[in-house]
Amino acid sequence: MKSPLMTKRRNQHFIWLGAVVVVAVLPLVFGDGYSQTVILTIGLYAIFGIGLQLTMGTGGILNMGHAAFIGIGAYSSAIVTTKGGNPWVGMLVGIVVAGVLAFVVGLPILRLRSLYLAIATLCVALAVTNVLGFWTALTGGQNGVTGIVPFSIGDFSFIDLPSQIYLIWGFLLVAVLIRINLRYSVVGREFEAIKDSDLATSSLGINHGARRLQIFVIGSVIGAVGGSLYATYLSAITPDLFGFPFLIQIFVLVALGGMVSLWGAPIGAIAVVCLHEFVIPVISGGNAGPVEIVIFGVILVIVMIFAPNGLTDQVVSTTRRLVKIARRRRNHDEPSSVTPASKKVAA
């Protein structure tokens, strides 16, 4: 007898395989440069979103510093490659720096409630952008870094758009796989339990502080990997890229995609990138900056009022409840038609 969780997990892996096929075909279907840029940006944002989803949804930590961790990944890549290093080394440096910083910043969570961590991450975020902007010797100051070398394996270098799409979406699929496995493992279920009650889980011998710290580090490292990919795609970065408006975009992404939904980050990424690329230019008619800030702010407020766990999660849970009500009503009307045996077969 298989547990429902096992079946669900296998289904998720089938979906994952399907996603691989779709990703392989996508750049072939959309041949022109603009569509490919959009697809690539969606992939990047989905990676950022998964990192934030892990810390916020799974870990229950309000991470205001995610944009800064992405920035750390990006700047590590940029600085290492412009100094003549290998891009993969740059990514590794980004992972280590972001991981260590997340660990140190996250330490208070072993003792404190999430609100304090929100403040601590916010302070770190602003401190990081401040340092990136003013440590001119290393980061180039407000002018940023240019001439970032793209990733390469052997002689093959990820320069043209389709190969970059494959690279970024490849990383995204790995991130999704990590997320699926985290959800359907013992650790994942521990997280579900921690979210319900700190007290009950600690009485079961789960160290919720340590678990939260782990998820915070993992989420930040995924952000840093995304940042590293972002930097090599843009090939030139400035500190402003990783400021507050960017953070809000990722928050909107997670708000639309749902805090815990496994496929929420890609869905949210599609929504945010489409809003940014297609909807907002039409509405604003030229003066995009402030209009975009207002629209994203309004979306964030409205979604969080009516769906505190995110739009996708809300839709899923509402649908599930409606289906359950409908089924119960049908069973109530004709109790003879559904015997326990036929129910088992149907299941």
Binding site: L62, F244, I248, F251, A255, I293, F296, G297, V301
Partner: peptide, 10 residues
């Protein structure tokens, strides 16, 4: 918190 953040952006 995200609501107040959204308001600040607006």
């Amino acid at each position: 918190l995200l609501i107040t953040l959204g308001i600040s952006q607006v």
